[in-house]
Amino acid sequence: MDERILKWLYDIKLCIDEIDSFFQEEEKDFFKYKNNLMLKELLKEILRSLVKP
């Protein structure tokens, strides 16, 4: 597999793991997430980091 693709897949996995770590101690409740502006912005930044070249 192309090295660029492997790096991209690895970055996706790191982001998923990082996002998942925010929910280790709390239940995954969409309504709690929806009301938590700080967490929403943090997750947006993590996901944006995937799209930046």
Rank of each mutant, 00 (worst) to 15 (best):
M1F: 14
L37T: 06
E26S: 12
E26T: 08
F30P: 08
E3Q: 14
L50R: 06
D29F: 03
L39G: 03
L14T: 10
L47P: 09
F31H: 01
I5P: 04
I46E: 03
C15F: 10
N35E: 10
I5V: 13
I46A: 01
E25N: 15
F23L: 10
C15Q: 09
L47Y: 00
K13L: 04
F31R: 03
N35K: 11
D17R: 05
L47W: 05
K32Q: 00
E27L: 05
F31V: 04
L47H: 07
L42I: 02
L9K: 14
K40D: 03
D29G: 03
D17P: 00
D20S: 11
K32I: 05
K34Y: 04
P53F: 09
E3K: 15
E27K: 10
L6D: 12
D2M: 13
K52C: 08
I46M: 07
Y33C: 08
K40A: 07
L9Y: 04
C15Y: 01
D17A: 06
L39C: 00
D17K: 13
F31E: 04
K40Y: 08
S21Y: 08
I19F: 00
E41A: 03
L43M: 08
K52N: 04
L39T: 04
L42M: 11
D17H: 00
K28D: 02
D11L: 13
K28H: 02
L6K: 15
F23S: 01
I5L: 15
K44T: 00
L43R: 01
F30Y: 05
L42N: 06
L47M: 06
K32S: 02
V51K: 12
D20Q: 11
D17F: 04
L9F: 09
L6I: 09
L37I: 01
L37F: 13
K32R: 11
D20I: 06
E26C: 09
C15W: 00
F23E: 02
N35I: 04
L50P: 05
C15G: 08
I19Q: 09
R48E: 02
